[in-house]
Simulated scan of single mutants.
Amino acid sequence: MRILVLGGSGFAGRAVAAEAVARGCDVTVLNRGRRDPVPGVRQLTGDRLTADGLRALDGGRWDAVVDTWSADARAVELAAAALAGRAGHYTYVSSRSVYHYDENPSPASSSPGLTAGAPGGASWADAPALTEDAPLVAADDPGYAGDKLRGEQAAEHFGGPLLLARAGLILGPHEDVGRLPWWLRRLQRGGPTLAPGPRDLPLQYIDVRDLAAFVLDAAAAGRTGPYTVVNESGHTTMGELLGIANEVTGGHADLRWTAPEAILDAGIEPWTQLPIWLPPGPLYAFMHRGDVSRATAAGLRCRPVRDTVADTWSWLADLPGPAPLRTDRPPVGLSPEAEATLL
C-alpha cells in the first residue's frame, strides 16, 4: 500500500509510519520537519497551519491516509478536502474524549458492578459501558474533546471511505505526554513510593503499536465509521502495571498502596499528578470501562502489558537526555514533597 501519514514523527503518527514501513508499504509523511523521521519513509515538509502548508502533497496519490491532528480542526478540513479523490481511504485518529461524560450515569442492572463503596457510590459501577453509539460532546465544546469531535466532522470533507479511530489512553515507546515515562522514572528513583489504590483497579489503554496495526489493517479492509480503539477493561490492573514497572526499572521502589480517599483528601489530582490513575467513580468508568467489542471483532489485538512497559523503559533508557514532551499539554507527575507529605 501507498500510505500517507499526516504527522509521522511524534507518537501515534510515528508508530503508524514505523508499522507501515515494517509491512513493506511505500510510506510518505508530511510534517514540519522538527523531529527525525522514521527510517524508510519519504519525508515532505509543510506546516498545516499556513496557507501553503499542503503544497508538498501536490500531485501525489495514496491508497490510504492517516491523520493524527488534535488541535484546530481547520487543519483536518483542509487536508481532507485537498486529498479528496487522491486517496482511497482516510483515517482520523480521534479520541474516546468525544463521548459525552455523564457525572451521574444511569444504572443498568445487566452490567456487572465494580468496587463497591468507592467514591461516587455504586450507581456509576452499574452504568453500561460506552459504545460507539453513545452521545457525543457538544460541537462547540472549547477543549480537547471538542477539537477531536470537530476533527471528525472536518474529516468528512474527504468525501470517501472514512475511519474514525477513537483511541483511549495511549501508552508505549515514544510517548510524548509523559504518563508512563513519569512512573518509570519515579520507580527507578526508588524508596517509599505512593501507589494509588485499589491495587486491583482494572485499567484500559492501548499500546500505540497496537493502535497503528489496527489502523493499517482497517484501512486495508476499507473499514469505515467510528471504532473505540483500546484494550478490554481489565487487560491489566494498577497493581500489575506498577509492579512490572518497578521490576523492569530495577526493583528499587517500595510501593505504598494508598486508598483513593486519602489521596483525594490530600488534594492530589488524579490523572495529572498521578498519571494513568483515576479513583473509582464516574470518571474512572468513563475512561476505563469502554465497550471495545466492535474493534475486537474487526481485528484489534493487544499485546501484554509487560511488553508495553518493558519496551517503553528500553526506549527511555537509551535516550541521551530527557524524553521529548508535547508543548500543548500540561506536565504530569507528583512532586517529591507532596508525595512525602502524604506518605
Score class of each variant (00 low, 15 high):
residue 77 E to M: 02
residue 100 H to E: 12
residue 76 V to K: 05
residue 112 P to F: 11
residue 102 D to I: 10
residue 101 Y to I: 04
residue 122 A to V: 11
residue 101 Y to T: 06
residue 87 A to F: 12
residue 74 R to G: 14
residue 88 G to A: 12
residue 79 A to P: 07
residue 118 A to I: 06
residue 104 N to Y: 11
residue 112 P to H: 12
residue 86 R to M: 10
residue 134 A to T: 00
residue 107 P to W: 08
residue 127 A to C: 06
residue 132 E to L: 02
residue 124 W to E: 01
residue 109 S to D: 14
residue 110 S to F: 08
residue 129 A to V: 00
residue 108 A to G: 15
residue 121 G to P: 10
residue 101 Y to N: 06
residue 94 S to I: 05
residue 124 W to R: 05
residue 104 N to E: 13
residue 126 D to K: 14
residue 78 L to M: 09
residue 81 A to Y: 01
residue 93 V to K: 03
residue 133 D to N: 09
residue 118 A to K: 05
residue 139 A to F: 00
residue 90 Y to T: 05
residue 83 L to W: 08
residue 126 D to I: 00
residue 114 L to K: 09
residue 101 Y to A: 03
residue 137 V to F: 02
residue 115 T to Y: 14
residue 129 A to K: 00
residue 135 P to Q: 02
residue 117 G to C: 12
residue 92 Y to I: 13
residue 122 A to Q: 11
residue 123 S to L: 03
residue 128 P to W: 02
residue 74 R to F: 00
residue 134 A to C: 02
residue 111 S to N: 09
residue 112 P to A: 15
residue 137 V to N: 03
residue 75 A to H: 13
residue 139 A to P: 00
residue 81 A to M: 02
residue 101 Y to D: 03
residue 91 T to S: 13
residue 99 Y to D: 04
residue 135 P to V: 00
residue 86 R to T: 08
residue 87 A to Y: 07
residue 116 A to I: 07
residue 82 A to E: 13
residue 120 G to D: 06
residue 97 S to A: 15
residue 132 E to S: 03
residue 84 A to D: 07
residue 139 A to N: 00
residue 79 A to Q: 10
residue 135 P to M: 02
residue 119 P to A: 08
residue 119 P to N: 03
residue 97 S to W: 02
residue 124 W to V: 06
residue 130 L to V: 01
residue 92 Y to P: 04
residue 78 L to Y: 03
residue 112 P to R: 12
residue 112 P to Q: 12
residue 117 G to M: 12
residue 128 P to I: 03
residue 89 H to E: 09
residue 134 A to H: 01
residue 75 A to G: 10
residue 116 A to G: 10
residue 115 T to L: 13
residue 78 L to G: 01
residue 111 S to F: 12
residue 130 L to C: 00
residue 136 L to C: 00
residue 95 S to D: 05
residue 120 G to S: 11
residue 106 S to G: 09
residue 126 D to S: 11
residue 100 H to Q: 14
residue 104 N to A: 15
residue 74 R to C: 01
residue 105 P to M: 12
residue 87 A to N: 10
residue 84 A to S: 15
residue 139 A to M: 04
residue 98 V to W: 09
residue 103 E to P: 15
residue 90 Y to R: 05
residue 122 A to N: 15
residue 135 P to T: 03
residue 83 L to F: 08
residue 94 S to L: 11
residue 130 L to H: 01
residue 103 E to S: 14
residue 123 S to M: 07
residue 79 A to M: 09
residue 76 V to Q: 09
residue 90 Y to G: 10
residue 111 S to Q: 14
residue 101 Y to S: 06
residue 133 D to E: 13
residue 138 A to Y: 00
residue 93 V to C: 10
residue 117 G to S: 14
residue 124 W to A: 15
residue 114 L to G: 08
residue 128 P to D: 02
residue 82 A to N: 01
residue 96 R to Y: 02
residue 119 P to G: 04
residue 82 A to K: 12
residue 82 A to T: 06
residue 134 A to N: 00
residue 88 G to N: 05
residue 107 P to V: 14
residue 76 V to W: 05
residue 121 G to E: 09
